[in-house]
């Protein structure tokens, strides 16, 4: 069997997804045995021209991580789409915007103003903002265009498979690679490397019927390691999040942050979470509700930590 041509790319991301690929450890050699890595900017040098020069369909599988924040991200996404037989949105940023998409609570101009003019360590009395083109004596300099909002991959190109996670866990990555190699692929558009049940299904903690009198932030209490975190008032996103990660955060006594995204059929993870925890708040009067809600710091940021690009109110519908 001919070796696969594999490309890994990072767009607007932290690099964690690439590191996660390396975290398969010695198995990376097995990957190398079955696949030629034709592009992997974080590990191997590569040029736009090299990709441009490829015939369409040269790349068998492209694992694309990171969100689409600017024109360069989009350009490469389109380029890789053209050259790849299978395009995989790899990691939460590519799947649903991820952490970078938290910026979507603001628009581009607000972001630029904040970053280039208002942060305490910035000295920018002239109020200089980045430009896409700038004439200097040496010639024209150009920068990618910074978009109004952060988008996930399928908002700019067609995506064949989704692998959620921030980052996807090495075990799940290995599963995905094996599936690709064996050709044993699920139908197009499927989410791979995550289960069809919520994290609660794999969470080993003791769960009871839920009633919450107040919510806590993680630094405020040391939760009982045996009991459901949500019942203890920690905003664990486990109930609205796909399993498959092996409940790693939970095992470290930390609540789930929701990176594996919503369950199949749920179109808005944050809204669903509001609907669920709204029901288990153990208060009655509007005043009590109000004071209980005071104990939730940044609800939108918490509930949409990884899903802003696909949120009904700010994203595009998948």
């Amino acid at each position: 069997m001919a070796k696969l041509n594999l490309a890994l790319y990072w767009a607007s991301s932290c690099g964690g997804c690439d590191v996660a690929v390396l975290d398969v450890n010695e198995k990376i050699l097995d990957i190398a045995a079955v696949a030629d890595i034709v592009l992997w900017p974080v590990a191997v040098d590569g040029k736009y021209a090299d990709i441009e020069a490829m015939e369409p369909g040269t790349i068998d599988v492209c694992l694309f991580n990171g969100a689409v924040r600017n024109s360069e991200n989009e350009h490469i996404a389109m380029l890789l789409r053209e050259k790849s037989k299978v395009m995989v949105a790899f990691g939460s940023c590519a799947v649903s915007g991820g952490i970078p998409a938290l910026a979507n609570f603001k628009e581009r101009d607000e972001v630029l103003k904040r970053v280039f003019m208002e942060t305490p360590s910035t000295v920018n009395p002239e109020g200089v903002l980045p430009l896409t083109r700038c004439e200097v004596p040496e010639g024209t300099l150009s920068l990618p265009e910074f978009y109004k909002y952060v988008h996930c991959l399928d908002q700019v190109v067609e995506v064949d498979y989704y692998v959620p996670g921030c980052p996807p866990t090495p075990q799940r990555i290995w599963d995905v690679v094996q599936a690709i190699v064996s050709g044993n692929l699920p139908p197009r558009g499927a989410t791979v490397g995550a289960t069809e049940k919520s994290l609660c299904d794999e969470c080993k903690r003791i769960k009871q019927n839920k009633k919450v009198k107040r919510f806590y932030r993680v630094h405020e209490i040391i939760p009982d390691p045996e009991r459901c975190l949500l019942e203890q008032g920690l905003l664990c996103m486990g109930p609205v999040t796909r399993g498959g990660c092996g409940a790693q955060c939970i095992s470290a006594n930390m609540p789930c942050r929701g990176c594996y995204g919503p369950l199949p059929g749920v179109i808005d993870q944050g809204a669903k979470y509001i609907s669920s925890i709204g029901s288990i708040m153990d208060v009655q009067s509007p005043e009590e509700v109000e004071s209980l809600l005071e104990t939730i710091a940044d609800p939108a940021g918490t509930f949409y930590r990884f899903g802003m690009s696909t949120a009904l109110l700010r994203g595009a519908n998948r």
């Binding site: 609570f105 509001i274 029901s279």
Partner: peptide, 20 residues
């Protein structure tokens, strides 16, 4: 309706953060 009474205020908080 107590579910409503609890859900909707939380939703409104989120809505506001979205700038709605």
């Amino acid at each position: 309706n107590y579910n409503t009474l609890k859900r909707i205020p939380l939703m409104l908080k989120v809505l506001e953060q979205f700038g709605v």
